[in-house]
């Protein structure tokens, strides 16, 4: 498979981690850490599909693969196209560390229609995270995808090795403590917002594209202050050596949106309450993006947000 990019980039989502050619990016996401689906596309077609779900019972992997391929064959038969060519029991994953804790079944299938498609895939059961992961790398039949597919499948991990989880999407990468989980995500054109929750409260990681348009001629400091919903008590600047861009840190108090009552809000007992907040932000000029990390709430975890901010890679 000839990718237009020779560079490879990581994708991390709900404890899953894989590396793919740079021009493949997330095309579809659903589910959560327990059960979910992730698809990466390039400009032409879907390139990687990953599904994960908790282990239920002890159904042999080869039977699950057989069921999937049967379904695919049935779909193909309904389209009245030539039958699917299937190969099973392939050893696509060579990494010893992966093989130690996982039972793996590799496979390959290809269609013979006009726009023929092929895929190399693997299904495995992990004894550490107790999840079944199904992954396949797709390509057109005329492409040689074996080397790319095996490389992608060999980089795929279903759980983190250390105490942190890597989150990587659309060119942004950072790490959160393994005890934190994703509560909410918004993947919009020009805006990515990820909200995490953990034992020490919540944090938000936000990226805005088209920074020049957002700033609209204002210096970053002005924009950062104007977009802080609250009173700023303390402020400091971030060292460029540590964050690769000059940035700002604000600490203050803001109205907790959860305590705002629409009805009878004027009553003394129903007045909105204030909570502390902490916010880091910087302008990544090479990537034309604005980054903001926020920790609402009073819980004493000043290090949590800083640690996430330190790991954030904003441009390649």
């Amino acid at each position: 498979m000839k990718s237009s990019s020779s560079r490879w980039t990581p994708t991390g989502w709900h404890r899953l981690y894989l590396e793919t050619p740079e021009d493949w990016s997330i095309g579809a996401i659903s589910g959560d850490a327990t059960t979910g689906y992730l698809r990466l596309d390039d400009a032409v077609m879907p390139r990687v599909e990953v599904r994960w779900e908790p282990v239920k019972g002890q159904e042999p992997l080869d039977r699950i693969v057989a069921r999937y391929l049967e379904k695919l064959t049935e779909k193909n038969r309904k389209k009245k196209t030539p039958p699917l060519k299937v190969r099973r029991g392939l050893n696509l994953i060579k990494d010893e560390a992966v093989l130690q804790t996982r039972a793996i079944e590799g496979f390959h299938w290809e269609t013979e229609s006009e726009d023929a498609v092929q895929a190399y895939g693997a299904l495995w059961r992990c004894s550490v995270c107790n999840r079944i992961v199904f992954a396949q790398v797709l390509g057109l039949d005329r492409e040689s995808i074996f080397s790319t597919a095996t490389r992608v499948l060999n980089t795929l991990r279903d759980h983190p090795e250390g105490d942190t989880v890597v989150w990587a999407l659309y060119g942004m990468k950072f790490e959160t403590p393994a005890t934190w989980s994703l509560k909410e995500h918004r993947l919009l054109t020009g805006r990515i917002l990820l909200r995490f929750t953990g034992p020490d409260g919540e944090i938000e990681v936000e990226r805005l594209s088209l920074a020049e348009m957002q700033l609209n001629g204002r210096p970053f400091e002005t924009w950062f202050e104007q977009t802080c919903d609250g009173d700023i008590d303390r402020r400091d600047s971030l060292s460029e050596a540590e964050f690769s861009h000059p940035g700002l840190w604000y600490f203050g108090t803001a109205i907790d949106p959860a305590t705002v009552h629409k009805r009878l809000g004027w009553l003394p007992g129903r007045r909105p309450k204030k909570h502390g907040f902490e916010r880091y932000g910087w302008h990544c000029a090479p990537g034309n993006k604005l980054f903001s990390l926020r920790r609402p709430g009073e819980r004493p975890t000043p290090e949590a947000l800083l640690n996430v901010a330190r790991t954030l890679t904003c441009h390649r």
Binding site: D41, Y170, T189, N288
Partner: peptide
């Protein structure tokens, strides 16, 4: 396709961002 590439280069957008916004 070339419009998407130009948008991507000019405004330093990710491929998906440039594609979705240009097509819309």
């Amino acid at each position: 396709e070339s419009l998407i590439s130009l948008m991507r280069e000019e405004y330093k957008l990710e491929r998906k961002e440039a594609e979705v916004s240009t097509l819309t």
